[in-house]
Simulated assay, not measured.
Amino acid sequence: MSDVKLVVCHECDLICHEVSLHVGEAACCPRCHARLFHRNRSTLDQTLALAFTTAILFFIMNTFPLMSLHLQQNTRETSLFGAALAMWDREMHVLCLLVILTTIVAPALQIGIEIYILAYIKWGTRIQTTSLPMMILQKLRPWSMVEVFMLGLLVSLVKLKDLADIIVGPAFWSCAGLIVVSAIMGGMLTPRNVWMWSQERKSHVNC
């Protein structure tokens, strides 16, 4: 009985036996047909490489200009933090704080926790649970809204294109890349994959 692996459905709480899947297959609950888990090709090394990629893209997004506006011999550049400060100067204090929270603080914490979880599984000298960091990550992910900021930025570009010459900066492309890489990370860094990688690490250490 100790070798029997069970899975609890997150929709109807039905306890099911875990089944072996081929790559690309998914297991569904026999009662409510909700997806229990999905097997993909992601590995620990691939996910860790993507985590470092998100950190680099996030650094570029917050360091280099988002865009430059050229109007009547005047050129102005703005960065992500500079745009938030401009809102503060215009007395939009709540909006400024929301932008900083959802596009700087929350993504930074999310990337840091992701790297911590993966690096600890990969190189940790002591085997301990990663359930608490994973729970924090799951709660934190909805607060990371870089894609919402990107959508607002695109709307602004469309409105300003007839008023001034707009030069897109490196941070703009880094923001677009961060959205794509983060979406891929969300499908790879799942609680099930973290548990599987931790079990493989424990088995390797015990051997």
Results as ranks from 00 to 15, higher is better:
2 S>W: 06
5 K>C: 03
6 L>K: 05
9 C>N: 03
13 D>V: 01
15 I>E: 02
17 H>C: 03
21 L>P: 15
21 L>T: 10
22 H>D: 12
27 A>T: 01
29 C>L: 04
30 P>K: 10
30 P>F: 09
31 R>I: 06
32 C>I: 04
32 C>G: 10
33 H>L: 05
34 A>N: 15
35 R>F: 05
41 R>Q: 15
42 S>K: 06
44 L>S: 11
49 A>D: 14
50 L>V: 03
51 A>L: 13
53 T>Y: 04
55 A>G: 11
55 A>F: 14
59 F>Q: 13
63 T>G: 13
67 M>S: 06
73 Q>M: 03
74 N>H: 07
74 N>C: 01
78 T>V: 07
78 T>Q: 12
82 G>R: 03
87 M>R: 06
89 D>N: 10
89 D>A: 09
92 M>Y: 12
95 L>Y: 07
95 L>S: 07
102 T>R: 01
103 T>R: 04
104 I>G: 11
108 A>R: 02
109 L>D: 04
112 G>N: 04
112 G>L: 03
116 Y>P: 05
116 Y>C: 02
117 I>L: 01
117 I>V: 09
124 G>H: 08
129 T>R: 10
130 T>C: 09
132 L>C: 02
133 P>W: 10
147 E>Y: 04
147 E>T: 02
150 M>V: 03
150 M>R: 06
150 M>P: 00
154 L>E: 06
157 L>C: 07
159 K>G: 09
160 L>Q: 03
161 K>E: 11
164 A>L: 10
168 V>F: 13
168 V>M: 15
169 G>S: 09
171 A>T: 08
175 C>I: 08
176 A>P: 03
182 S>Y: 06
185 M>G: 14
186 G>A: 11
189 L>E: 14
191 P>V: 13
200 E>Q: 15
205 V>C: 14
206 N>G: 04
206 N>W: 11
206 N>P: 00
